[in-house]
Simulated scan of single mutants.
Amino acid sequence: MDVLLQQILNGLTLGGTYSLVALGLTLVYGILHVPNFAHGAFYMVGAFVSYHLMAAWGANYWVAMVGSAVVVAVLAALSERLIFHPLRHHEGLHPMIAAIGLLLFLEAGAQALWGADFRRMSTPYGGIVNIFGATAPVQRLLIIAGAFSLMLALHLFLTRTVTGSTIVAMAQNREGASLMGIDATRVAMLTFAISGVLAAVAATLYSPIGLVFPAMGNLVITKAFVIIILGGMGSVPGAILGGLIIGFAEAFAAFYISTDYQDIVAFVLLVVILSLRPEGLFKQRAR
């Protein structure tokens, strides 16, 4: 029983992190139809900013998380304004090439600033607690609580606030929303900023049990794309459910099969689920 509970905790840890990253990605795609490959670089920048604030400036963990979220939100909003907004009338490869270029630029910039070495982020929550016989690092419990709290906050924001309603309206019909007086430019920048906050928080939560390095966002963003395809492109519930499915699958595969095959599980599930349900678990919708 404790072994099963241990894997459930591991699955919730991975699933919560993946869902946060995938939520930011699916928000941008669902509203702007931009496949933002640079989202993994936002995740990486969030981790490095938090690491730098704590290691170089001695900032508190939570202060570093807030500072990282602000920096990445501004970076994401500027990216929308300077890179994606001029390409808004172009379809096909133009936005994707721009996103890949931004990804490479941010990775090169991180390597120039912080080097290519692997770094370990410190955390004040390094203890271990026992839950019904299973040992759980406090940081993992923090990841689970933080990730699902942020998901709930995002849901309430999208469904209970006027600003959130404008984002939902843009996702349903961009032209119609513009005709109703919604400022599409402001909503687009806000959407990118929110996606940046989600990526930065996810990175700051997970990095203490992982490693911080310039290419750390590549595998995460690949899995995030798998998740939003599984859940249905543009679907917020699909991103959450897809993240949990991948997280649990990886946790159980790592324990019962081998950690060598952990990262392959996401792509095997993608093939299996899309062969049964090509449109994903959820059809595209705003909420």
Rank of each mutant, 00 (worst) to 15 (best):
G247A: 08
S207T: 11
F118Q: 07
A177C: 01
H39E: 00
L244M: 07
R140Q: 03
T166Q: 05
P208H: 14
L141F: 04
R88S: 00
F248T: 01
Y125T: 10
A69I: 10
T166V: 05
T13W: 04
L102Y: 05
V271C: 06
T222F: 10
F84I: 06
T161W: 01
L274T: 12
T163S: 14
L93E: 08
I144N: 10
T259R: 07
G231I: 11
M65L: 15
E279Q: 15
F282R: 01
G109D: 01
I143C: 04
G109M: 01
S50T: 12
D183Q: 05
A199S: 13
I221N: 08
V168P: 01
L87S: 07
F157S: 04
L230G: 03
A134T: 14
G196Q: 07
I229Q: 01
F192M: 14
F132S: 04
S258W: 08
I229D: 10
S195R: 08
L5H: 14
S207Q: 07
G243F: 03
E279A: 08
D117C: 08
V138F: 15
Y51G: 02
S68N: 11
D183L: 03
Q284T: 15
H155P: 14
N60R: 14
V187G: 00
A59T: 00
T204R: 05
I182E: 00
T259H: 10
L142Y: 07
Q284P: 10
V271W: 13
I209S: 12
S195V: 10
R81F: 12
T13H: 08
V74S: 07
L25N: 00
A41G: 13
A22P: 02
S207N: 10
G30T: 14
A202T: 04
A73P: 02
T185Y: 12
G109H: 05
F267I: 02
G133A: 09
S50Y: 10
F255A: 07
A108I: 12
V138S: 04
D183C: 04
S50G: 14
I257H: 11
G127M: 09
V28P: 07
D263Q: 15
V220M: 15
S235L: 00
L113E: 03
R277K: 15
L274M: 13
A200W: 02
G217M: 05
V226P: 00
S275A: 12
V71E: 02
M233K: 14
L244D: 00
V3N: 03
I194L: 05
M170E: 06
L142M: 11
P95S: 07
G92K: 01
S275I: 10
V168T: 15
A47C: 01
H89A: 11
R186I: 09
F118H: 09
V129Q: 09
A99P: 06
T159M: 12
M189N: 06
A177P: 08
V72K: 00
G11N: 06
S149C: 13
Q284Y: 12
R174H: 05
I8Y: 06
G58I: 06
A56S: 12
A224V: 02
S79L: 15
T166R: 07
S50A: 15
L20A: 06
A108V: 13
L158N: 01
V74Y: 13
G58F: 05
V212D: 04
S122H: 03
A38D: 01
P137T: 04
A76E: 09
L156R: 08
V236L: 13
I246A: 02
